[in-house]
Simulated scan of single mutants.
Amino acid sequence: MKKFIIRFSLYIVGLFTLAIGIALSLRSNLGVSPVTSIPSVFSQISGKSVGTTTFLFYSICVVLQIIILKKDYKLKDLLQVGFSSVFGVFTDIALYLFQGLSVTNYLGKILLLVLSLVVVSIGLFLILTSDIVINAPEGLCIAISKKWNVAFSKVKSSFDIFCVILSLGVSLLVFGNLGQIREGTIIAALSIGRITGFIMNRYSKKLKGLYS
């Protein structure tokens, strides 16, 4: 029971850390993170909060996992839907906490962006290593990784790039501009998967030692 409590605590911390990373990327004003780009553009279209559209996007990711894995899909992974709603709330809370954060010079924005990339990667690392319920987008990447035997870090990077392309297309179609897709989004798409993979390779065994 004690081991489960530690793992669950790490998972919740990971969820909130990920939400903070997303909020920091938004406040950098250099573009939203790749996975957030889709909820962000649909938030602008619908008028709903980013947390709400994040929950809807994550639910779609769960459906795609079921389609890909079919009989190999584990029923416990349906908990992703419930925890996606929690993450949606965390996202809105993090955005509220950092609503007053404003960086005007470009160097400061770059530093804030880099910080957000590291924080997002740490959040993903905690979520994946705690092995409670995988965050829905990462669960989709893992499903693709298992189905076609491709390294998770490569799938994650490709998925991030796909999210950017999709949100960019929708933004151009609906608003006629790039929306919140900027250089920071591209940098994040190319780096988050690699940073997460680096952290997991170096520290996953040490973290698992806390509850193994």
Rank of each mutant, 00 (worst) to 15 (best):
S153W: 15
L115A: 11
V133N: 01
F8H: 07
V133G: 01
C141L: 04
V35H: 05
N201S: 13
K206I: 14
V155M: 00
F4H: 11
I5T: 11
I110W: 13
I132F: 11
G51Q: 01
I127N: 10
V170T: 12
I187E: 00
L30D: 01
C141F: 13
S191H: 10
K206N: 11
L56Y: 15
R27W: 05
R194L: 14
A143V: 11
K48V: 13
S37L: 03
M1Y: 15
K109V: 10
K2E: 08
L18T: 11
S191L: 09
S157D: 05
F90T: 11
S28I: 06
F87C: 09
L128I: 15
G14P: 13
S121K: 08
C163Y: 15
F198Y: 15
K109H: 11
K71N: 08
L190K: 04
F125R: 02
A143E: 03
S84T: 09
V63Y: 12
K2V: 14
V89A: 05
A188C: 10
S212D: 14
A151K: 05
C61Q: 04
I60F: 13
T104M: 04
I165G: 06
S145D: 03
P39V: 01
L111M: 12
R27I: 03
G184E: 01
I165D: 08
L56G: 09
K2Y: 14
S49T: 03
S171D: 06
L10A: 06
Q180F: 15
Q80E: 02
F125K: 03
S167T: 14
I6A: 00
L126N: 04
I165L: 11
P137T: 08
L140H: 09
F125P: 10
L78S: 06
I142F: 01
N105C: 06
Y106K: 03
F125D: 05
K109I: 08
S49R: 00
K71L: 03
G82A: 06
K76R: 12
G47F: 00
G82Q: 07
A189R: 07
L24N: 07
F8Y: 13
F55H: 06
L97D: 10
T104F: 12
S59K: 02
P34V: 08
Q99M: 08
A23N: 05
F90N: 07
V118F: 15
S153K: 13
D77Q: 15
I195N: 12
G88R: 05
E138D: 13
L178V: 15
S212H: 13
V86N: 04
G123S: 04
N149S: 09
F162Y: 12
L112V: 11
K208S: 10
G139L: 01
I181M: 01
S102K: 10
A23H: 07
